[in-house]
């Protein structure tokens, strides 16, 4: 009985995973009714010599599904442009730790990736922010907890 439950659990876990080869994954372009403009920039890290080039992705119009989140838009854009993306967690608490081999803490303990939508830095996780289409998203790398990219950290 115990073994049966274990085997079922393993099979269910394996079925819920989708395994794709790199060419298959990058080969399929993202698709959807809505679109948003996304850019990825790390000029702060480039200034310190931690990354080659400031602009990882210039303004790119990415196709997204209805009720997609900022994270979905980033995922699609990275897939279309073959950019490496590393994240932790799932659901509302997805955390983007690295883009294009540039990781959090690479420029000190206050560094990492933040995002803004239409110039505003939302204080929710990127997979909790729903898009309506037509927004301008920018992912920015900060070396000083947001202060150097115009998102000063407030205590409240």
């Amino acid at each position: 009985m115990k073994r049966l439950i274990l085997i079922t659990a393993v099979i269910l876990t394996l079925c819920s995973c989708s395994i794709k080869l790199a060419d298959d994954y990058y080969g399929s372009k993202s698709d959807g009714e809505l679109s948003a403009v996304i850019s990825i920039n790390c000029s702060t890290a480039d200034d310190r010599g931690k990354h080659d080039g400031a602009e990882i992705l210039g303004d790119y119009s990415v196709k997204i599904d209805e009720s997609a989140t900022v994270f979905d838009a980033l995922k699609n854009a990275c897939r279309d442009n073959r950019i490496q993306l590393d994240f932790k967690g799932s659901g509302d608490s997805v955390y983007v730790s690295g883009i294009d081999y540039l990781y959090e803490f690479d420029c000190g303990s206050l560094s990492g990736w933040e995002y803004s939508v239409d110039g505003v830095f939302p204080s929710v996780g990127c997979n909790a922010f729903k898009l309506k289409g037509g927004e301008k998203i920018s992912w920015l790398y900060t070396c000083d907890l947001g202060e150097d990219i115009g998102n000063k950290y407030r205590e409240d």
Binding site: L21, D24, Q84
Partner: peptide, 16 residues
Amino acid sequence: FSHNGATVLFFLNDSR
């Protein structure tokens, strides 16, 4: 747990 690295073997649920 770590998805850093340039040589992708395969993708597992959007994670390399």
